[in-house]
């Protein structure tokens, strides 16, 4: 008897192992992401809320519980609203022209070009340059007196622009750096989306006698709408946390004498690691920015959903 049960016992053990394998291994496979995300993503964000409720000094560490005092402090400063204004201004100046330029570039790329890959790679070159490096190059181009742009302007008897002294001009300069780096990248995304538009639609439009421009406005652009939304959403999350370019826009890195180009993340850094060394206040800024971004994300989601249900040509997405 025992001799006959032995093999079945091992096979049942193997079966158990196999079952465990099938049951548990998938979780093991996906666990690295979750473990890491909880440790360095979720936990720090939640803990930020805890820090923001305390007096918390870079060097001394945790101090007294102060309730919402840090939020009160931060919301009572001009700097916070300036940072908010600058962040959104830079974001708008970088996302709107960028999307338009990217669609335009995609449109001219969307043809049976010779050396296709060359052109596509060409527009992508700026993407591989680090924002810090981009910013250092443009800081020289946009220097007020010794910069390239202003000297060209003055050479043409035009007035020089206060790239650093004027808030809007500084936002424009910083947005230019962002646009430089990302326009080509987004153009490729739009290009892919354009190529996925069924050509029959175009053919139908041609048969109807629609001209090139009209085809672009009435066929191409509407068909790209989901992609435009995708690009805008993804750039919101990063764009509102912008730090590298404005930080490097001048040598001091504090965002100008009037903090005219200080962004939210720069303010966070200044509070936490600058002379105030207040992790509590910095956390309050982080948490406020976090809520703003999440809020905009939800808004985006709702708008997208409405557009999606409102019909219109669906994306070629499964």
């Amino acid at each position: 008897m025992t001799t006959t049960t032995r093999p079945s016992r091992t096979s049942s053990r193997r079966a158990v192992l196999a079952r465990l394998d099938v049951r548990l291994t998938p979780y093991v496979f996906i666990s690295p992401f979750f473990v890491l995300f909880f440790l360095v993503g979720l936990f720090p964000i939640l803990y930020t809320a805890w820090v923001s409720l305390h007096e918390w000094d870079l060097i001394r560490g945790q101090g007294e519980f102060v309730g919402l005092a840090n939020f009160q402090f931060v919301l009572g400063t001009d700097s916070f609203y300036k940072a908010l204004r600058n962040t959104f201004s830079i974001f708008l100046l970088s996302s709107v022209p960028q999307v338009i330029a990217a669609i335009f570039i995609a449109y001219i790329l969307d043809a049976n070009l010779r050396a296709k890959t060359f052109w596509r790679m060409g527009v992508l070159v700026p993407f591989i340059v680090a924002p810090v490096a981009v910013s250092m190059i443009f800081a020289k181009i946009f220097a007020d007196q010794s910069g390239l742009v202003n000297n060209l302007l003055m050479g043409m008897d035009l007035p020089a622009i206060g790239w650093h002294s004027d808030a809007l001009a500084s936002h424009f300069a910083i947005a230019t750096m962002v646009n430089f780096r990302w326009t080509g990248y987004n153009a490729l995304i739009f290009l892919a989306a354009m190529q996925a538009i069924p050509r029959e639609i175009y053919e139908a439009a041609i048969i109807d006698g629609t001209g090139r421009m009209r085809r672009f406005w009435h066929v191409t652009v509407p068909m790209l709408r989901p992609t435009i939304i995708f690009v805008v959403i993804t750039s919101t999350i990063g764009g509102l946390q912008i730090f590298d370019e404005p930080r490097m826009f001048d040598t001091a890195g504090s965002g100008g004498a009037s903090r005219q180009w200080m962004t939210m993340t720069m303010y966070l850094y200044e509070l936490g690691w600058g002379p105030q060394v207040s992790f509590g206040r910095a956390s309050a800024v982080a948490w406020l920015l976090f809520m703003i971004i999440i809020g905009i994300g939800i808004l985006n989601y709702l708008i997208t959903k409405r557009i999606a249900t409102a019909g219109g040509p669906a994306k070629t997405e499964r």
């Binding site: 010794s146 910069g147 040598t251």
Partner: peptide
């Protein structure tokens, strides 16, 4: 009208 250590200061 130059900030010390700025691009313009260096060039001046």
């Amino acid at each position: 009208g130059l900030t010390q250590w700025s691009e313009d200061w260096t060039a001046a």
